[in-house]
Write a protein that binds this DNA or RNA. Structure first.
Lengths: 196, 196
DNA sequence: GTCGAACTATACAAACCTGTATGTATAGTA
DNA sequence: TACTATACATACAGGTTTGTATAGTTCGAC
């Protein structure tokens, strides 16, 4: 058992504690506004340990985005349980976003927020962000095809734009109503694009 | 004539130079990433002058957002020239966003970006951002009513979500294609919601 | 020709930032 | 018992941040 675990009673490894603390603070206050000193302190870890595990702040940012992506898909899987049709899964996608916006401290999409803060285009975070977004779009396209849409890629793209717009608007207005509206619009579009 | 104007050959007042410089840097690199030292230097002004005019960095940020809002409506007015119908004006809205995304250094909506960086909810910038967004939504609602939509508020809200989603996606993908797609989706929705 | 407004130049305070250097303590393993 | 991994504590380097204090300069208007 490591020294800090004894001291704090937190059984997780130092790396785990650093990552979850960083994820929280990066999302809540922004990446630039969160210093490594603060992260180390809140994770009950020394800065030396933080740098031993993640190499640099940028490394920690990248790890945070990877972890967030994994968490997102794991959570979405739960919403997918019990779905049998493409329409079901499309609804699940909007439900997942909504549940997430309903949780406390909602501040919009963490990936989009990170992308606006990471002004250096070569930052490794951008690749992770783009992969995440493309994964969502691809899922929507699969659901559209499954639901029998005549042009699945086009339907998916419009749903994707509605989702993104509703997420940022929900954040600005501190309301989940835009996500409800986007869901209704998406389902209406599904009805008009698929036979039956 | 002030000393600096002589030195730099820039006939604008110091306040004007500070504001345009700050607006550029805030949008290009982000608000937190841009220091007042850099702004003062690039505007060929001392920090003392900057603080005499704007009081604080937050004051300068608020002034920047106000100026950006004014610039946006002035530019949109040009796109509105020659429009005679609600549908025309709706198209003009999407065209304005598109033109703006086509300009060099596009990095998404400056208001949304600012909102994600201004994590303190009491920052005066948030009111300016919300007013700007509400102004856009209200314009869209007026266009929807003019075009004879049966439920103008609902149509406007969906167009708004498409616009927001397309803007952030255009930024992430470095492509204006999402804005084209959003425009097509908005016009299709207009056709199905208004008689004739 | 003097006054006031606007501006410059320089220097500083106090806090923060990322990252590293040095040395120590503990737990598990061979 | 010796070795290795992991983490600790402390201190520092070198730079940046916002904001202010002080004194001097330029220029137009009265």
């Amino acid at each position: 058992m490591a020294a800090t675990q004894r001291r704090t009673g937190d059984a997780r490894s130092a790396a785990e504690r650093i990552l979850t603390t960083a994820s929280q603070l990066f999302y809540e206050h922004g990446i630039r506004a969160t210093g490594v000193n603060t992260i180390a302190e809140r994770a009950a870890v020394t800065k030396v340990t933080l740098y031993a595990h993640f190499g640099s702040k940028d490394g920690l940012v990248a790890a945070h985005l990877r972890a967030r992506d994994q968490r997102w898909w794991a959570e979405f899987d739960e919403f997918l349980a019990g779905c049998t049709t493409g329409a079901d899964r499309l609804r699940a996608m909007f439900d997942a976003y909504q549940a997430w916006a309903l949780a406390g401290g909602f501040r919009g999409c963490g990936f989009v927020n990170a992308a606006t803060e990471l002004t250096a285009p070569e930052h490794p975070g951008h690749a992770i962000i783009n992969d995440h977004k493309e994964g969502i779009r691809r899922s929507l396209e699969a659901f559209a095809a499954e639901a029998g849409c005549t042009h699945p890629a086009e339907a998916a793209e419009e749903w994707f734009l509605l989702l993104e717009g509703a997420t940022v608007t929900a954040s600005l207005r501190h309301s989940t109503e835009p996500l409800h509206r986007a869901r209704r619009a998406a389902l209406r579009r599904l009805d008009s694009a698929s036979p039956q």
